[in-house]
């Protein structure tokens, strides 16, 4: 519809100043206006100037708004104190980075717990969603695929906190899981699922599964079925076909899904606070602790955030390289 309208316009009336009755159109009036013409003549005088006008504001935006916050975080992490008191010279120090390993591993514990959580949960999410994506892409009729995908999307439109609350109700001592277990006679007393690594994991997988599912689905959906069929004709069994054909050809989707889920899952703050306990403190909570006060501990919090960011980026980078190497190895 829109295309036809656009085509019709390009064909006849984009530049036309008058409608069929000879009256000036809205766009005719605009483009016929002398001030507008003068402005256009100045703005679009040369392709170079056109490009400058197109590029200037977005460039300023990405540098000041996208990069700026990260650079300022880096800057604050190196300041002796923040905010500076009046007349104080800014002095740089690595002191706040040193605190990371100090205090007998007080901060290292949640840090490595977060990374371990991130890696294990990413792998678990992959194992759970791969068969789901595979079923959707291969065993569902094409015209039904989008409807089922929409069905899977609905819970993901709901926010982090609402979905975390839903998990709290599911896993509580009077929650549905415990009730079902007791009713089945499998347990005498409710199992304390809540405030453990288990409840945090269930919650985080619940929140991030979609970011794995979508790249996997689009990779599987693009893969021609004929590849597997050809392999089957040549006598390859189900497992061989999956291992030798489907898996290598969906490595790219696996790579982007895993990277996304890892980066997103280590960044959650509200969910581990609500679902976790004292033994599951994640690094997000450690960092947040430095920002609950007015400002004197901000440099330490910023330093820890910088450490976490670069560690996460490095891990994601190594993983992406690994996937790329695997893909190359397979195509040889």
């Amino acid at each position: 519809m829109i295309d036809h309208a656009a085509q019709a316009k390009t064909g006849s009336d984009v530049a036309a100043a008058d409608d069929p009755q000879g009256r000036p159109t809205f766009w005719g009036r605009v483009t016929g206006n002398r001030a507008y013409r003068a402005l256009v003549a100045v703005l679009f005088a040369s392709p170079r100037r056109q490009f400058l006008i197109l590029a200037a504001f977005p460039l300023v935006w990405v540098v000041t708004q996208h990069l700026g916050p990260m650079l300022q975080m880096l800057n604050v992490s190196l300041l002796e104190s923040y905010p500076l008191s009046a007349g104080e010279e800014a002095s740089l120090t690595f002191e706040h980075y040193r605190k990371f390993t100090a205090d007998g591993g007080l901060f290292l514990k949640p840090f490595f717990r977060t990374l371990t959580f991130g890696v294990v949960l990413t792998f678990a999410t992959l194992l759970i969603t791969y068969p789901v994506a595979y079923f959707l892409a291969r065993h569902v009729k094409r015209e039904n695929q989008l409807s089922l995908l929409l069905l899977l999307l609905i819970p993901f439109w709901t926010g982090e906190i609402v979905r975390t609350y839903a998990i709290m109700i599911l896993l509580g001592n009077n929650g549905a899981v415990n009730l079902a277990l007791q009713w089945l006679g499998l347990v005498e007393r409710p199992i304390p699922f809540m405030y453990t690594g288990f409840s945090v994991s269930v919650g985080l997988i619940y929140l991030t599964a979609l970011y794995m599912l979508l790249p996997l689905y689009s990779a599987l959906e693009k893969l021609p079925r004929s590849y597997s069929e050809a392999a089957a004709d040549l006598g390859a069994g189900t497992w061989t076909r999956f291992r030798r054909i489907t898996l290598p050809l969906t490595l790219e989707g696996i790579g982007s899904g895993c990277t996304l889920v890892f980066l997103i899952s280590i960044g959650y703050y509200g969910t581990p606070v609500l679902l976790g306990g004292p033994n599951t403190t994640v690094f997000a909570e450690t960092i947040a602790g430095f920002f609950h006060t007015a400002g004197d501990e901000w440099p330490t919090g910023a330093a820890f955030a910088v450490i976490m960011f670069f560690t996460a980026l490095a891990m994601a980078g190594i993983f992406t390289r690994l996937i790329a190497m695997l893909r190359k190895g397979d195509s040889r």
């Binding site: 996208h66 916050p69 604050v76 997103i264 703050y269 960092i287 955030a305």
Partner: peptide
């Protein structure tokens, strides 16, 4: 480089993004 900068806010883990915005807002 512009593409990388454009996509940066979507890739920064949530807590780090919030902290960075908090610091920058003060700035």
């Amino acid at each position: 480089a512009v593409y990388a900068l454009m996509i940066l806010p979507a890739l920064v883990p949530g807590i780090i993004s919030a902290i960075a915005f908090r610091i920058y807002a003060r700035q």
